Simulated scan of single mutants.
Amino acid sequence: MTISTVQSPVLIHTIRDLRAWRATATREGQAVGFVPTMGALHDGHLHLLRTARKQCDRVVLSIFVNPAQFAPHEDLATYPRTLDADLALLARSAPTHGPGADPMAAFRPLADVVFAPNPAEMYPAGISTDVREQRGTFVEVLGVSHQMEGVTRPHFFRGVATIVLKLFNAVQPDRAYFGQKDVQQCVVLRNMVRDLLLPLTVVTVPTVRSATGLALSSRNRYLTPDQMEPALTLRRALVAASERYEAGERRRTHLLKAAHAVFATEPRAQLEYISLAHPVTLAELDVVGQDGAILSGAFRVGTTRLIDNILLGCAL
């Protein structure tokens, strides 16, 4: 098995080598946690890894910029690819441990394995961002993929579900960890795992934010210093609506009115949508019921597109 290392994490590029590593973990009876990413790692990713490290014996992190979830006009070519910097960050990021933890755990990396395949490894039939040109096998999770983010990005979750299923098949994790920031993705993948009878648990981890409240995202690095203030507009809008909810308001019109009022004060923020959806079906709600709701949205600051959400009376 050909494996190179960058300090602590083991770097693997092929499914063959990854499966050999996984077979050893299986023989040793080790539970494997998995954090799929597109790289450009930040503290949000590290929080996912720390959560996985606390709950699993071994942790795999994947770094793969997935062409199938980009449309031809989107930022695939310019999406940050920072493998060396990502590996260096992992090498200097120690796990956190509670009382009674194994003292030797402090010497283990956040990720035991970094799986960084090339596109041909993940898409043997080839891959294009143009759906009309694509060949091979793809996965769609119907009912929860074509609203919210799926309105402006109609093939996005087809690409997400396809690559995540491929990664699940390669890694064979016991648990997979996703951030709440991508809340619709969490719902889509939970449905996929349920419907395809996959033997793993999807764990949703709360969003990590900067000191200002901005949800951490790899795309935040696109923001210029003077765009940091308008980049908080969606967060402020969601908080304004959440405050109305906490005060007893349940009607869609009144909750969204509070959110839209915030955007009206910030012309540099271009709102795409705000959604008030059922946490399981993602159906848009006129009134928030006992199941609660996902309040989410997307907007642009300059050319940078950002998303965020707040859970109202529910958990994922």
Rank of each mutant, 00 (worst) to 15 (best):
303 T>R: 13
258 A>Q: 06
268 R>E: 13
277 A>K: 00
181 K>G: 03
230 P>F: 11
125 A>Y: 12
91 A>L: 08
193 V>G: 08
34 F>Q: 01
194 R>M: 11
35 V>E: 00
191 N>G: 11
22 R>Q: 10
167 L>V: 08
225 P>K: 07
125 A>K: 09
52 A>I: 06
284 E>W: 02
256 L>K: 01
214 L>I: 03
89 L>P: 10
117 P>R: 02
133 E>Q: 14
105 A>T: 14
259 A>Y: 03
251 R>G: 13
287 V>G: 07
284 E>D: 14
43 D>R: 12
59 V>K: 01
177 Y>W: 04
108 R>F: 15
195 D>R: 10
57 D>R: 07
272 E>R: 08
125 A>H: 13
188 V>P: 05
278 H>I: 00
297 G>S: 11
293 A>K: 00
116 A>V: 04
157 F>D: 02
35 V>F: 06
248 G>H: 02
72 P>N: 06
242 S>R: 01
50 R>I: 10
207 T>I: 10
112 D>A: 09
223 L>F: 05
154 P>D: 12
155 H>L: 10
98 G>N: 09
183 V>I: 15
159 G>M: 04
136 G>T: 12
10 V>E: 13
210 S>F: 15
248 G>S: 02
15 I>G: 10
91 A>W: 09
276 L>E: 00
286 D>K: 11
149 E>L: 03
83 L>Q: 09
49 L>Y: 06
130 D>C: 09
27 R>H: 14
300 R>F: 15
18 L>M: 04
121 E>Y: 05
233 T>L: 13
52 A>E: 05
70 F>M: 04
62 S>D: 05
115 F>D: 03
248 G>Y: 00
